[in-house]
Amino acid sequence: MSMLKDWINKGRLKSPWVVHFDCGSCNGCDIEVLACLTPVYDVERFGILNIGDPKHADVLLVTGTVNHRNKHVLKNIYDQMPEPKAVIAMGACGLTGGVFREAYNVVGGVDKVIPVDVYVRGCPPKPEAIIDGVVLALEKVKAKLEAAG
C-alpha cells in the first residue's frame, strides 16, 4: 500500500497537467505559454501537458485581468478540478490587475476569487519563468499534502 502511495506521490510531481484559463489577457502571456510547448522549451520533458479539461488538470494557470464578467467562470473552472490541485497566477494582470487595476469592471488579481499558490511575475513572464512556476506549484502541493498527512 505504501508503495502505491509512493508511486502516486512520484506521479504527482512528474505529471502536472495544466489547464490554461485566459481571463482577458492581452495575449502576451498566452503566447509565452504556448512558447513553452514548442521544441525550444518542450515542457513535455517534465511531463507537463497542456490539457483542455479542468477535470483532468492538476494545475490551473491563469493569465489576464479578472473582471466581474468572468470571475464566476474562473471560480467554476477551479471548482471542477479534482484535488489535489494548484493555481498559478501569471503576469502583471493576473497578479494584481496590472494597468487595468483601477478600471470600474476589474476585480483585481486572481487571488481575489480563488486561492493562488504561485505568482509568476512579468509582463509577460519568460517561458523559463512559467516552467519554474509550475515546478514550484508542485512543490507547494507536495508540502500541502505532507502537512495534511
Partner: peptide, 9 residues
C-alpha cells in the same frame, strides 16, 4: 507517472 497520479486524485 500519469496513471499513478490520476489514481491518487
Amino acid at each position: 507517472y500519469d496513471v499513478f497520479k490520476l489514481l491518487g486524485k
